[in-house]
Each structure stands twice: as structure tokens, then as C-alpha cells.
Simulated assay, not measured.
Amino acid sequence: MQQFYKFLKLIIPFSIVLFSLQYYSTTAFFQNTIFFYSTWSIYVFHLVLTLLSYVFLIFVNKTFPDKTGFAFMGISLIKMMAAIVFLIPLLQSDLKSKIPDVSAFFIPYFLYLFFETFFAIRLINKQ
């Protein structure tokens, strides 16, 4: 549980800073653009998915330490599928340009993925 608290102490400020930067940039630079998803819904999605996947990785590491890397790859695949399901309403919408919305979603997606990968590698290397 100590590993989760360390992760939580870093992911919460990371999320707040990223949310603030994206919220500021979307309101300052994209005033004429109407986004399909709000910034907070994107970050709630990413934060919840990242926390659940890391809890799962900790569980796998405690019970089957040699399978943690495979679990990380599997949970990453599930997260990718969840991202596509999350974006289906956007993709089916009648918006002219979907690029700002997709960018607003995938930039934090990859930053969260990098953050989670860093902690997963630390978890695997502790063995």
C-alpha cells in the first residue's frame, strides 16, 4: 500500500498541473473552438483509469511478481480500448474538425502513460 501512496502523492499534483495548463491553453488560445469533451471529463477519465491500472499492477506484483510486465502490457491494451470507447461519441459527431478534441485527449493520455510506465518500471525493478 505504501507504493500506492507514493504514486498518489505524485499523480495528484501532476494531474492538477496538467489540468491547469490545458484549461488555461484551451480558454486562452482556442476561444472560438467548441470542444466536444470538457477538460475536467478528460482528466477524470485519465486519472481514474491510471489509478485503477496501477492498483492492478501492485496487486499482480504482490501475487505474481514475475508477471508484472505482462500485466502492464495487458492493462495498457485495455486502456487503449477504453480510450477508443470514450472517443466514439466524438468520432460519430458532426463536428467539422475533430483534431483539437483528439489532441486535447491524446496529449494527456500519452503523458499519463509515460507517468504510469515510469512507475511500472520502478515496480518491476524492485524485484
Rank of each mutant, 00 (worst) to 15 (best):
Q2F: 10
Y5D: 06
Y5R: 11
F7Q: 02
L8Q: 09
L8E: 11
L10G: 07
L10P: 05
S15C: 11
S15M: 11
I16K: 00
L18Y: 01
S20A: 15
S20W: 11
L21Q: 05
Y23F: 13
Y23V: 03
Y24H: 06
T26F: 12
T26Y: 11
F29N: 13
F30Q: 10
Q31S: 14
Q31Y: 10
N32T: 15
T33K: 09
F36M: 04
S38K: 07
S38E: 08
S38F: 02
T39W: 00
W40G: 01
W40L: 10
Y43Q: 09
V44T: 13
F45V: 00
L49N: 11
L49A: 05
T50R: 01
L51I: 13
L51P: 00
L52M: 10
S53L: 04
V55P: 05
V55R: 14
I58M: 07
F59E: 14
V60Y: 06
V60G: 04
V60L: 09
N61W: 10
N61L: 07
K62T: 13
K62I: 12
T63M: 10
F64C: 08
F64P: 03
K67L: 14
G69Y: 09
A71L: 05
A71R: 02
F72D: 06
G74R: 02
I75F: 13
S76M: 01
S76K: 01
S76L: 10
I78N: 00
I78K: 00
M81K: 05
M81E: 03
M81V: 12
I84Q: 01
I84E: 01
I84D: 01
F86I: 05
L87V: 06
I88A: 04
L90E: 01
L90H: 01
L91H: 01
Q92C: 00
S93E: 02
S93R: 03
D94P: 07
L95A: 11
S97T: 14
S97I: 15
K98D: 08
K98P: 09
I99A: 08
I99E: 06
A104N: 14
F106I: 05
I107L: 09
I107G: 02
P108R: 07
F110K: 05
L111I: 07
Y112R: 00
Y112I: 05
L113G: 09
L113Q: 09
F114Y: 10
F115I: 03
F115H: 04
E116G: 05
E116C: 04
E116M: 09
T117W: 10
F118P: 02
I121Y: 09
I121E: 04
I121R: 03
R122V: 07
R122Y: 07
L123Q: 02
L123C: 08
I124T: 10
I124H: 09
N125T: 11
Q127S: 12
Q127L: 12
Q127W: 04
